Simulated scan of single mutants.
Amino acid sequence: MKQFLQKKAKLVFLCMLVLLTCTACANPRGRDGKTLADQIIASEETTIDASQINYKDISDKELKKEIKKNIKDGQYTIQPTTFKESMSKGWFEGLIVWPIAQIINLISAKTDAGVGIILTTLLIQVLVFLFTRKSQMSTQRMQEIQPEIQKIQNKYKDKTDERSKMQMAQEMQNIYQKYDIHPFGSMLITFIQLPIMMGMYYATMRSVSVVSGSFMGISLAGTPLDGFKALDIAYISIYVLMVIFYIVSMKLPQWLKKWQDKKDNVKVKKYAQEETNPMANSMNMSMYFMTAMICIMYISWPMAMSFYWLVSSVIRVCQSLILHKVMNKK
């Protein structure tokens, strides 16, 4: 059991973190997919069309009656959401969801909901990078040195004695030290990014500027599934671009390594080639599985989330190019 937990520690950690963040907030959407009226976060008093919200699925009957009573001429006025109110519902909502939603609202008030998401995403990515730049550089280096790691693994492939295992571990540790890589550095990135991603999910659904706003005529409260049903090119395009850029952001470090090797006339040994490299194949399978999972989840999530993930992927592509250039310069 102990050995199993040691091998699966990262997976167990991620599952616990996902469970923690997913259960930290109530589901903000009603059965019709619209945001519940009592879940909307506003930075100032805002009047929106009542058809854009859901109040029928609110469990509190008294609150439901009060909201219904306040709908006049098809319009509903939302009062500002304070930090104190958000904190009373839980730390996750107060410390993560509320600030992100308010940043989107403040930026959107001067532009539109789409620009609000773009600039908020950029701000979040910059802050995450400042706190995890060493870990992110280690992660990218780890992807780029896979041929050297594979060489060591192949060297001890058929050796199962303890001495060989220790020698393999030592040689791999030497490689990590040579390239200044911290194998568990990606844990820090995941620890920070996963709660933020879930916070962005709730913020984009609950931000009043997104609930009632749009970007270039596209309603950000709708879902890609709605777009596919209506054959809406704009919805479909954003969703497809999100998938494409996500794959590019995942594969780019490997592509950059191949391009650099070709530029430096580095000959890749047969065992390190992708088609004969079990580790590379395993990484590709994991990437395709993650892509499939994201495609399934995001097709029924608000377009705001697809837009956020698209912007994040574009930023990661730019970040990979910059990190590659910095590492090669060093």
Rank of each mutant, 00 (worst) to 15 (best):
V248P: 04
I189K: 02
I322D: 02
K10T: 12
R29A: 07
Q136K: 07
L14K: 05
Q260W: 13
F184R: 03
Q193L: 05
S249T: 04
Q143S: 10
I104Q: 05
L231M: 14
F131Q: 14
N265F: 10
Q146G: 01
E62N: 09
I107H: 10
R133D: 10
R141K: 15
R141N: 05
L122M: 09
I294A: 10
Q39N: 05
K251D: 00
G116H: 12
Y246C: 02
T21N: 12
Q3P: 00
E93R: 14
Q153K: 00
I244P: 10
S313I: 08
Q136G: 15
W91M: 14
I296M: 11
I96E: 08
Q52R: 11
D261H: 12
S51L: 00
L127E: 03
S320D: 11
C25Y: 12
M166C: 00
N284D: 14
Y76R: 01
I96G: 14
Y55N: 09
Y271E: 15
L241C: 10
Y156F: 11
I296P: 03
W259V: 05
A230H: 07
I118F: 10
K151F: 00
M297T: 03
I48P: 08
G90M: 08
Y179Q: 01
V128N: 09
S214H: 10
G30T: 06
K269R: 13
F129E: 04
T121H: 06
G90C: 04
G222F: 03
N328H: 09
T190K: 05
L19C: 15
M200G: 04
I218K: 01
P224T: 13
V317P: 04
L321G: 12
E45K: 13
I78Y: 15
L5N: 07
K159W: 01
V314F: 03
I124W: 04
E44N: 10
A24E: 05
I107M: 11
I175L: 15
R31M: 03
I315Y: 09
L122A: 15
Y76Q: 02
I296C: 06
L188M: 10
M197I: 13
C22E: 06
S207V: 01
S320A: 15
T139M: 14
V208R: 02
F307P: 09
M279N: 03
K251S: 02
S282M: 15
S237F: 09
G222A: 13
T81P: 12
K229Y: 03
M187N: 13
T276S: 13
A113L: 08
G217Q: 03
I233F: 13
E274W: 08
V208H: 02
V211P: 04
I48L: 15
S108D: 10
Q136T: 04
E93K: 15
Q177S: 12
G33N: 08
W98E: 03
I296L: 13
M303H: 09
Y201L: 14
Y76P: 01
Q177E: 12
L252F: 03
A9T: 02
M1L: 08
S43M: 06
I152E: 02
N70L: 00
I117M: 09
C25W: 04
Y246Q: 06
Q6D: 09
M283K: 11
N277Q: 00
M198A: 10
V326P: 02
M172W: 01
N27S: 07
L106K: 14
I124L: 15
S186M: 12
S164G: 04
